[in-house]
């Protein structure tokens, strides 16, 4: 069952240098019980896409959203603010990147979690408090009945991220949007948090949209992957297909950049040449052309479309037929 369907989403910002389109015609869907990864470098529009779904932009930021976002049968971009408030935190939850700054420093974690429960589940203060302790224990926080009265600054980064997850999950959302939930954490904690999300997904049958720049995390937990570059999706495939047979030079570049355990010491790591262009100077043809080793005249002048290269595998490249990775060497799947 399709939970979320995004069609031709465009998100524009006004800046001092003029208007920029941070997300340009993005379409995808997330099914119930499925984990979809959204991958790309910093500034490619991953987070903006996720914020656009819940319309979490401040009024004065001058953000303009276009396209369609269906959550079940409901169109989110045309919903009223009251309807959005009903969906946010209740049916669609979001976990943010930085647990250090995403919790309010002047309220206890218990207060911040129970607030959602009282609002959406109409629980009494006491019931919400008990449920909060239950949630904290579910996300693996030791002695939750004490921690519930702690302020965020009294908790470590890993604990805070668990609190964020507890907050995101307390109302049993149908869709969880997790924006780099493990980036700020130690590797051991990362694995715990990912396992926890997986377990809870099985229990609650929720869809997860996982935003990350870490391909290791993608290989570990995702069913399907979307690769974004400069505001567009450049490749979409199941996780196996993507790692075995990537069809976009950018995806290949990302995979080659992962250091491997059997690589030689002192050997230089692979880098994608050049810099991500500014949103003010988007290339005329393929957006990746200036950095692409395969680019030719056509790539530089004509922007390619996202086309189906095989069953449920799409890529945005003129040369997808002759691109691939030979023998799959030097790519570590599941490596973190």
């Amino acid at each position: 069952m399709t939970l979320l369907k995004v069609k031709n989403l465009k998100t524009r910002f006004s800046t001092e240098l003029g208007e920029v389109t941070a997300v340009d015609g993005v379409s995808f869907h997330v099914n119930a019980g499925e984990t979809v990864g959204l991958v790309g470098e910093s500034g490619c529009g991953k987070s903006v896409t996720s914020l656009s779904i819940l319309r979490l932009f401040r009024k004065h930021s001058g953000t303009k959203l276009a396209g369609e976002i269906f959550f079940e049968q409901k169109e989110l971009l045309t919903s009223s603010m009251e309807e959005m408030q009903e969906i946010r935190g209740n049916q669609i939850s979001m976990i943010f990147q930085d647990p250090m700054s995403s919790l309010n420093p002047v309220y206890t974690v218990g207060n911040q979690i129970s607030e959602s429960l009282m609002l959406h589940q109409k629980l009494s203060k006491k019931e919400a408090y008990e449920k909060t302790i239950e949630m904290l224990s579910l996300v693996g926080i030791p002695s939750p009945e004490k921690r519930v009265n702690d302020y965020p600054h009294q908790l470590s980064g890993g604990m805070r991220q668990r609190v964020m997850i507890a907050m995101g999950l307390c109302c049993h959302p149908k869709l969880l949007i997790a924006d780099e939930p493990t980036t700020a954490l130690d590797v051991t904690i990362q694995a715990q948090i990912l396992d926890l999300m997986k377990d809870l997904q099985e229990q609650l049958q929720m869809g997860i949209m996982l935003i990350t720049h870490d391909l290791g995390v993608v290989a570990e937990v995702c069913d399907r992957v979307l690769v974004m570059y400069l505001g567009q999706i450049v490749e979409e495939a199941s996780v196996e297909t993507l790692f075995e047979n990537p069809k976009h030079p950018y995806t290949i570049g990302l995979m080659k950049s992962i250091p491997t355990i059997d690589g030689k010491r002192g050997e230089k790591l692979h880098v994608i040449e050049g810099m991500v262009p500014s949103l003010h100077q988007i290339p005329a043809g393929c957006r990746f052309a200036p950095r692409c080793p395969f680019a030719d005249e056509k790539c530089r002048s004509h922007p390619p479309d996202l086309i189906e290269v095989s069953h449920s595998h799409k890529a945005r490249c003129w040369h997808h037929e002759r691109i691939g990775i030979g023998g799959g060497n030097a790519i570590a799947i599941g490596n973190q």
Binding site: R88, F96, S102
Partner: peptide
């Protein structure tokens, strides 16, 4: 502009609660 304000909005809180409480 702080992140925790965005968190509060993402919870679905009413605007006045976000403003006056958070």
């Amino acid at each position: 502009n702080e992140n925790y304000i965005r968190t509060a909005e993402a919870k679905g809180l009413k605007m006045w609660i976000v403003t006056y409480k958070h």
